[in-house]
Design a protein around this nucleic acid. Structure first.
Lengths: 155, 155
DNA sequence: ACCGAAATCACCCGAAAGTGTGAAGGAAAA
DNA sequence: TTTTCCTTCACACTTTCGGGTGATTTCGGT
């Protein structure tokens, strides 16, 4: 139990103590104390000093610290994993179809496979990918993948 | 000052109080108390109850609750970003040079650019990348990127 | 000293990717 | 209604990629 007793508080306590003893002396001198039963007198003293003790302790004892550690999950980039950055997409003006193609490119599909999956011709996929590269300002599909992943345009 | 007085503690205090009063009675009954001066007796009572009060207060003062929020970074896959999975690399038997080439492929470089960066010929880079595709069991560089990133072989 | 893996390079060929241009239909906006 | 954008497709052409084969050098381990 760490007691952080400061000089000022001790002084206050000392003065209180002295005053109480003075009162005691006065009571003894005037024989008033013996008008009451000894138990009552002792009980009063006990209560007074106990209250004083409680007051002292509450005043001076450093509050107990209970540290409750709460873990807060923090995602890097303010983005939950797998979340896409809509603002970046709008910034580059990528259309819905172009995003589909971009995602499939990043998945490692060839243009022909993409064409098959989207039910369009190979030439269409080529056009889309060319437009993607233009809008993203890249030269190759691998660069497009890198940039798109870095900017959270695709997961 | 919030006092959190619990039933058990109050009981303990009550018993202590009763014992003390019993002691007092006994002392009074045996007239031992009057062998000493009244001030000493009262002082003893005062000190005892003050200590009791202090003890009570210290015991019962509600501990101050401090909530400490610890930010915990959350990563997918138990791997820190940029951390690589050495076991996967060994599983595929990728050499050091092949890893370099793989990283540059994933960075979006062309074979020629990789050759320039590694001070080797274009044919060497082609050989490396072919071996990479064989070891990773993929057909294209984009597939290699996808697989390598998924398995944390590269960042 | 020898072996095997790694790294280097060359050449050829076919496949895939990317460029440029043009065009047509449809939907939404001005 | 006109314009703009999206989507679709074609064709020709260039570049890059990837497979196959073979060769040389270097380096660590037995």
């Amino acid at each position: 139990m760490p007691l952080n007793i400061q000089r000022k508080e001790v002084l206050t306590y000392g003065i209180s103590m002295a005053l109480l003893l003075l009162l005691l002396k006065w009571l003894e001198a005037h024989f008033i104390v013996f008008n009451y039963r000894l138990e009552f007198f002792v009980g009063a003293i006990a209560i007074i000093f106990m209250v004083l003790g409680i007051w002292l302790a509450v005043k001076l004892v450093k509050p107990k610290l209970v540290i409750r550690v709460v873990e807060k999950e923090v995602y890097i980039n303010n983005l939950k994993p797998g979340e896409i950055n809509q603002k970046e997409i709008e910034k580059f003006g990528l259309s819905k179809r172009e995003l589909e193609v971009l995602a499939l490119i990043a998945a490692g599909l060839s243009n022909e496979e993409i064409a098959g999956k989207l039910f369009v011709s190979l030439n269409t996929v080529k056009t889309h990918s060319s437009n993607i590269f233009l809008k993203l300002d890249v030269k190759r599909r691998t660069q497009a993948i890198e940039k798109a992943k870095r900017l959270n345009i695709i997961h």
